[in-house]
């Protein structure tokens, strides 16, 4: 099978200068392979390392990989800088998008789009073409164009920030997207819109990894596989029915079996 992403025995620590023991291992041997065109889900208890995995995959400097490998589209992902990963087609929708005071959203979006286009050898978009594109997409996402004039995420509501993430995802045309709890804090309409956004990207060349605590989003997007991450490892993998089972019985039994 043609794998987009292959994670093998991944160990990663957080570098926390303020902590007494400045290195704390969070990922303790993650194995995960995602074929092209599939949608996978990661569920798991709070603090189990889901966001850490997504940060490590996109290259956040606070985390250090101590063991293992990650291959993305046949290339060694871990040697790439975060911008190279984005250009190669990786996208992370953040659980907590940062605010950028003093940075205009529309200009930020255009800079981002043109950076990846340039790196991919595509023609850059002039302001007119870009605006036409971004307005169309914003409309589809019911994202008020006022948000384009404001500073990136500054003063945005939780839901608006998430929509801004989905807008960025759509604009950057990734081949692999990680959505870290993009569904949290969304109202019912917004949830449907986000789901539509993800579905519209679906193709044999697009895969995604959805991190979620809720069944709701999965009702809209039928995933291929669901993985459970606990204590820094994937402890169980199942089909789409697994989420309902977890919702009914919690993580206790699986975590207990893994510990045993």
């Amino acid at each position: 099978m043609n794998m987009v992403l292959e994670i093998k025995n991944l160990h990663a620590s957080v570098i926390d200068e303020t902590a007494e023991d400045s290195r704390k291992e969070i990922l303790k041997g993650v194995n995960l392979s995602i074929p092209a065109g599939e949608t996978h889900v990661i569920m798991g208890p709070n603090g189990s390392g889901k966001s850490t995995l997504s940060y490590v995959l996109s290259g956040h400097p606070s985390y250090e990989v101590t063991e293992g490998s990650v291959t993305f589209k046949g290339q060694d992902l871990l040697v790439m800088t975060p911008d190279e990963r984005a250009a190669t087609g990786l996208f992370l929708a953040f659980q907590a998008p940062v605010e950028l005071p003093g940075v205009n959203n529309a200009n930020f979006l255009r800079t981002a789009v043109n950076s990846v286009r340039k790196a991919r050898g595509q023609e850059e978009l002039d302001p007119v073409k870009f605006l036409k594109l971004v307005r169309e997409l914003a409309k589809k996402l019911s994202f008020s164009t006022d948000m384009l004039k404001r500073n990136v995420n500054v003063g945005f509501s939780g839901g608006e920030k998430k929509r801004n993430e989905v807008l960025q995802m759509t604009l950057l045309e990734p081949s692999f997207a990680i959505l870290d709890e993009t569904d949290s804090g969304l109202d019912i309409d917004a949830l449907r819109i986000v789901a539509e956004g993800v579905k519209s990207l679906r193709s044999p060349e697009f895969s995604s990894l959805i991190i979620t605590h809720h069944q709701r989003l999965l009702d809209h997007i039928q995933p291929d596989y669901i993985h459970v991450l606990a204590k820094g490892r994937i402890i169980h993998t199942g089909g789409p029915e697994l989420s309902r089972q977890l919702e009914a019985e919690g993580y206790g039994r699986l975590v207990g079996e893994a510990d045993a």
Partner: peptide
């Protein structure tokens, strides 16, 4: 990191 993760060098 946020800016770089969006492809900006």
């Amino acid at each position: 990191f946020f800016l770089m993760a969006r492809g900006i060098p």
